[in-house]
Structures are given as structure tokens and as C-alpha cells.
């Protein structure tokens, strides 16, 4: 369990990097902190293991306030907190095996026991065949896997990820995130990760905090954040994965007031609560609406359908009303964006 209580960090140059940060990460969950460049993400995650000492506030790990500890006590706690970095931070002079074993060689653990601990981790991260290679001979994804194996060597309860996938291509990112998810499940590891990519949050985080200018402007479950972002910064981030804006040509055709020859354009929000039934088919076949899909952005996020569909609904007003109430009664949110004239 990680608790941050009213953390503030002001750098000596006067930059208020963090203010009033309150955060609680539950055991075993994957928690994301998202924000734009310069928002204070790195400062925040580095405060958790006191690589950066907060100017005020408390950092509680398993209830213990790290800011009050002596250097040696702090080192003991840090051994139980793994950390991985954007730039991997591997020793170039050490092999894959030696890198992964590094945290253990700092303790007085016998060689054989180190071997018995490290080899399963290399197995887990898919690096057994590479164990005698050096970092210079590895791809970015493989390097991050070594870093993950290293972070797990001390059997930590917590893993901190500082932009762990930002230096990787989308495909490799996906495989690293999958690996993080696996170790989260397998070891019940609590993961706190920071990122500027909504995609990362969407893929593995259960809960998320949005950081802007050193402050948390929104805390929500990932689903809530994506379907109902409140803070402007959150909306902006969400729109990066769900393009909610209508294409330009459509916007120009859109009128705010209906005419005799126009039909409404609906924006339908899928919140994930909607059942698996074929909603569109029902609208068309049972209720007799003609539905013209203008734009759809639907994503499966942690096994739930989330997203937005923008449609033109063509029918008389009675059918339109019936359609609208059918959608809302199925847990969808419908909003009339405007009206377009049927030209054809």
C-alpha cells in the first residue's frame, strides 16, 4: 500500500513541481498517473521511494513514513520497491544475468541462491537464451525485460515504472505491458506507473490520476475517466484515444436548430455497462430507424466496450423518441449534437 499525503515539492530553483498531492494505491492494483510533459510525473514517482525528497508531506509505504527514516532504514525499504526507467539504466559492463542479479549481489546472498532466484525471473521475462549477452546486444524491449527481471530480484511488493514504455515502439510497448500485467497477477505486485500515453493507462491501469501543473486534477477508475472525463486536462487526454470531434466537413453541415427536412445527429456513449445485445440492429430492425454511422470509436477496455459512436438517425419524430429511450434504458448516454439536412 502506497499513500501520499499532501506531498509538495519545490525545487531549489523555485519551480513548484508538485502541490497538494494525495494518492492512495491499494495492494495489488495497477495505478496510473498520466500527464503531459513537465506536469511533474517523474518528480512524483521519484518521491515515492525518496529518490527525490518531498518539500513537505508524507510518503507512507505499508503505513511507514519514509520521510522520517534514517539512510540505512530507507535502503532496506527501497530493496522492497522495484523500479524501472524509460532509459532502462542497465550496466553496459554486465551481462543480462549479472544485471538481473545486481540487487542480490548487494546483499550477502550466496551465489547458488542468487542463481536460483534469478534464473526463474529470466525465464519469466523470456531472456534465458540471452543470459550471457550484454545490453548493447539487446533491443529496447529486451533491455526493459532485463530491467524488469532486475526489479523483481528482491521480491518486491511494489513496482514503480517511470515512463517504462516511452522509448519503445507500439508493438514492444504492448508486450511489456502484458508482462507487467502478468507479474501483477502472478506476484500480487502493486504497480504505480507514470506515462503520458492514454493508451498505456487504457491497457493495464485499473485506476488513474491526471496530473497537471503539479496537481492532481482528476482521480477515477480508467473506465470512468475514458467515458466521463471531467477536468479539461483529462478530456484532452481522453480525446487523444477517442476522437470525439466530428470531421470538419460534417461540422460545417451541422445546424443547431432542426428544420422540416433535417434529421438529428446523435452522439452515443458506450460506458461498458451496456449489454452484449446488438443495440444497433435493434434500433434498425425493431424500431424502424434508419441509422447512418458517421463515426465510431469503440474500444474494449478491460473486457468492457467503451467509446463513442456518432450517427445520423433518420426517422419520424415518434420513432426517434422511441429509439432515444431504448438507448438510454440500455444504459447508454445519448446526446443530440445537431441536425443535418438530407440533401439526397
Amino acid at each position: 500500500m502506497i499513500q501520499l499525503l499532501d506531498i509538495a515539492k519545490t525545487y531549489p530553483n523555485g519551480v513548484h513541481a508538485l502541490q497538494h498531492i494525495n494518492l492512495q494505491v491499494k495492494p495489488g492494483e495497477i495505478y496510473g498517473i498520466i500527464g503531459k510533459s513537465g506536469a511533474g510525473k517523474s518528480t512524483l514517482i521519484r518521491c515515492v521511494n525518496l529518490l527525490e525528497r518531498p518539500s513537505s508531506g508524507k510518503v507512507l509505504i505499508e503505513g511507514e513514513d519514509l520521510t522520517t527514516l534514517f539512510a540505512s532504514q530507507l535502503r532496506d525499504i527501497r530493496r522492497k520497491i522495484g523500479m524501472i526507467f524509460q532509459q532502462f539504466n542497465l550496466l553496459n559492463s554486465a551481462s543480462v544475468y549479472e544485471n538481473a542479479a545486481l540487487p542480490l549481489t548487494l546483499t550477502k546472498m550466496p551465489k547458488q541462491k542468487i542463481y536460483d532466484t534469478v534464473m526463474p525471473l529470466l525465464e519469466l521475462t523470456g531472456l534465458i537464451e540471452r543470459k550471457d549477452h550484454y545490453p548493447a546486444q539487446l533491443s529496447g524491449g529486451q533491455k526493459q525485460r532485463v530491467a524488469i527481471a532486475r526489479a523483481l530480484a528482491n521480491k518486491p511488493k511494489i513496482l514503480l515504472c517511470d515512463e517504462a514504455t516511452s522509448a519503445l515502439d507500439p508493438h514492444t510497448t504492448a508486450s511489456i505491458l502484458a508482462l507487467l500485467k502478468t507479474i501483477n497477477r502472478q506476484f500480487g505486485l502493486t504497480i504505480l506507473l507514470i506515462t503520458h500515453e492514454m493508451e498505456v493507462v487504457k491497457t493495464i491501469c485499473e485506476r488513474v490520476a491526471v496530473l497537471e501543473n503539479g496537481q492532481i486534477v482528476e482521480k477515477a477508475s480508467t473506465n470512468e475517466l475514458i467515458t466521463q472525463p471531467k477536468a479539461p486536462a483529462a478530456r484532452e487526454l481522453v480525446s487523444s484515444i477517442l476522437k470525439q470531434h466530428l470531421p470538419h466537413y460534417l461540422q460545417q453541415k451541422l445546424k443547431s436548430i432542426p428544420t422540416k427536412t433535417s434529421y438529428p445527429v446523435w452522439r452515443i456513449w458506450f460506458h461498458g455497462k451496456a449489454s452484449q445485445e446488438p443495440i444497433m440492429a435493434h434500433l434498425i430492425q425493431r424500431l424502424g430507424l434508419e441509422i447512418n454511422i458517421l463515426q465510431a470509436n469503440l474500444e474494449h477496455i478491460q473486457n468492457e466496450l467503451i467509446g463513442i459512436m456518432i450517427v445520423e438517425a433518420i426517422a419520424d419524430s415518434a420513432k426517434l423518441a422511441a429509439g432515444m429511450s431504448y438507448l438510454t434504458s440500455n444504459g447508454l448516454q445519448v446526446e443530440v449534437v445537431g441536425y443535418v439536412d438530407r440533401i439526397n
Partner: peptide, 22 residues
Amino acid sequence: SQGLVEAGLAMGATPLQIIRKI
């Protein structure tokens, strides 16, 4: 790279260990 020193600190290494091992 300073990042390596950070990694060492994050894994609980003492200053002497950081010098010798990193």
C-alpha cells in the same frame, strides 16, 4: 550515466556499493 546511479539508489545500494559495483 546518472540514471545508473539512480537505479543503484533505488535498489537500496550504499554509496560504497554504487562506487564498487556500478
